[in-house]
């Protein structure tokens, strides 16, 4: 081809995430957390804290649980603005990214009251967080001790099996057909996190759209080369 390659503008439309139980890929990194969430009827005091790095499946598990229990999912940031009594009256509650309450004393107090309210009314609570409560930076010791006393389940950083599944799912979400051998190829060369997988697949999608070529190993090699220190190879 001569001259500049024709390029198509690519919009990074967020792919729809499927959050059903059947869409959850169980691997050793998350099997225990999944089992704990599914055992919700036996959570001590009806509470669970789910921690794990970005992309490890916290939101997915929260949705699985909410679908089973009819729980309402609310974000931790801005919790003070929520009508707590109405929320608890409606049923069980999941607070996503609960560590965000630490940024605002009013949100911390709201989470504290939420825990007391749910306990008083026999509701269950699921908190999700990327980091452990010790590192949230809570200024309300009464809240910290309550969260630390909660049953906790940890989602580990993805192992190879999980990361392969994530890659396959990410390509499928974007309706990209890729050669089978591409997955192990990427796995051996990429940073091993779900975030990195997301970025990589998005970049390959954009590249493929722009160059009007299917995603291939050569395309991936070029991309990984660019992202990496050129001294590597």
């Amino acid at each position: 081809m001569s001259g500049p390659e024709p390029r198509q503008m690519a919009f990074d439309l967020p792919a729809l995430d499927a959050y059903g139980r059947d869409d959850f890929f169980a691997s050793p990194a998350n099997r225990l957390a999944l089992a704990t969430v599914e055992n919700w009827a036996n959570w001590p005091d009806g509470r669970l804290l789910l921690t794990g790095p970005a992309g490890s499946g916290k939101t997915h598990l929260a949705h699985i649980w909410a679908a089973e229990t009819g729980a309402t999912i609310v974000p931790g940031a801005g919790l003070a603005a929520a009508r707590l009594d109405a929320l608890v009256a409606a049923g069980d509650v999941a607070v996503e990214d609960a560590e965000a309450v630490a940024r605002d004393p009013a949100d911390q107090t709201a989470l504290f009251h939420l825990l007391n309210l749910t306990a008083a009314q026999g509701r269950r609570v699921l908190l999700t967080s990327a980091i452990s409560p010790r590192d949230w930076g809570l200024g309300l010791p009464d809240l910290l001790s309550r969260v630390q006393a909660m049953q906790a389940a940890r989602l580990d950083a993805p192992d190879d099996a999980l990361l392969s599944a994530v890659l396959v799912k990410l390509f499928a979400d974007r309706q990209l057909v890729v050669p089978e051998t591409l997955i192990p190829y990427l796995l051996a060369r990429m940073e091993r996190s779900v975030e990195a997988a997301r970025d990589l697949v998005a970049a390959l999608d954009a590249q493929s759209l722009a160059s009007r070529k299917p995603v291939s190993r050569a395309m991936a090699a070029k991309l990984l080369d660019k992202a990496d220190d050129p001294a590597e190879y």
Partner: peptide
């Protein structure tokens, strides 16, 4: 509270 919670968590985890 954290001390008692720790024991609760241990038993729940071990049973799982």
């Amino acid at each position: 509270r954290v001390l008692e919670g720790a024991l609760t968590r241990l038993f729940a985890f071990a049973s799982l």
